[in-house]
């Protein structure tokens, strides 16, 4: 009796979590096996896998799925390439410079997805800052088309999710003792080889964590592809939005959401396996 008392106190919190967090997920999964009643917003009776079949059969959705994976993978790679030097700078920096960089990194995280995307429109538009600069430098005569293209969307996604890569990297890189790098260079490793043989392998946990975060965020992103893709780039996020808010086919939108959830769940499991593999190799050798 006594041992169950603490659990009793936890009950309200558990109940609240169940209602506001788990219930919508359960409803989502339930709805994905429904169809819409003809000429109505209500769901028809009976459970069916019709939505899933449609997803596989309709090449529009399959293409969007593949495109989203591609975009997310590219975004992950680019955030890693851009994020590593930035994270290193923050991790090894000191005092005011470090604080300032870290604050700059956090800005996009706290001001939501829309604001940065609108800013990117100003930067990337035909008369925007980037094109203006390129023309001024004589590198191009006509404006490069960023908006409504895959490139523009990827740039937006990289900008939006860079902090998700940088923060875990800063965490692992700042725990890496400087002596270890110094030891490597005193043993004859050039800076490049110090990176390849020492820093990167030791930063692996941070790289995996950052990659999972950026990939999931890019996969589920909606605002950035919508605003920068200008409706021309269909990703899973924008397609789900169309189905839910424009077509009003909530069951099918649910199906899309469930697929995203499963995909991200798989990515998480894979990365955890990878992490465990790294750890085991480190121990076994």
């Amino acid at each position: 009796m006594r041992s169950s008392t603490p659990l009793l106190f936890l009950l309200p919190a558990v109940a609240l979590s169940a209602v506001v967090f788990l219930a919508p997920f359960a409803w989502l999964i339930y709805a994905s096996f429904k169809t819409q009643g003809a000429g109505s917003l209500l769901m028809a009776d009976g459970l069916t896998v019709k939505n899933y079949a449609r997803l596989v059969a309709d090449s529009y959705f399959a293409a969007a799925f593949v495109r989203t994976i591609g975009l997310s993978a590219l975004t992950t790679l680019l955030t890693l390439v851009v994020g590593l030097p930035v994270a290193r700078l923050i991790a090894t920096g000191s005092g005011r410079a470090k604080g300032l960089l870290l604050a700059l990194m956090l800005v996009p995280l706290v001001c939501g997805a829309l604001l940065p995307s609108l800013g990117m429109i100003h930067l990337l538009g035909p008369l925007g800052v980037v094109n203006g600069t390129l023309k001024l430098l004589g590198l191009t005569t006509s404006s490069i088309k960023f908006l409504g293209t895959t490139g523009g969307v990827v740039l937006g996604l990289v900008q939006a999710f860079l902090p998700l890569m940088v923060l875990p990297l800063v965490n692992t890189l700042s725990r890496l003792p400087r002596d270890v790098e110094h030891a490597a260079s005193s043993l004859g490793a050039s800076p490049l080889r110090v990176w390849r043989r020492v820093i990167l392998p030791l930063a692996m946990p941070g790289i995996v964590a950052g990659a999972v975060l950026v990939f999931s965020a890019a996969f589920t992103a909606f605002v950035t592809p919508q605003v920068l893709g200008q409706g021309k780039i269909a990703t899973f996020g924008t397609v789900a939005y169309q189905q839910a808010a424009l077509v009003l086919d909530w069951p099918f939108a649910s199906t899309l959401a469930v697929v995203v959830l499963v995909a991200i769940g798989l990515a998480l499991i894979l990365s955890a396996q990878f992490d465990r593999l790294l750890r085991r190799r480190r121990l076994a050798a």
């Binding site: 270890v180 110094h182 030891a183 490597a184 260079s185 005193s186 030791l202």
Partner: peptide, 22 residues
């Protein structure tokens, strides 16, 4: 001359072994 060209061995106070290598 950079450290990696000097052929000078250093033993650090923290030993600084590479934790991911045997």
């Amino acid at each position: 001359m950079p450290a990696y060209r000097r052929d000078i061995g250093v033993v650090f106070q923290s030993y600084a072994l590479f934790p991911h290598m045997s």
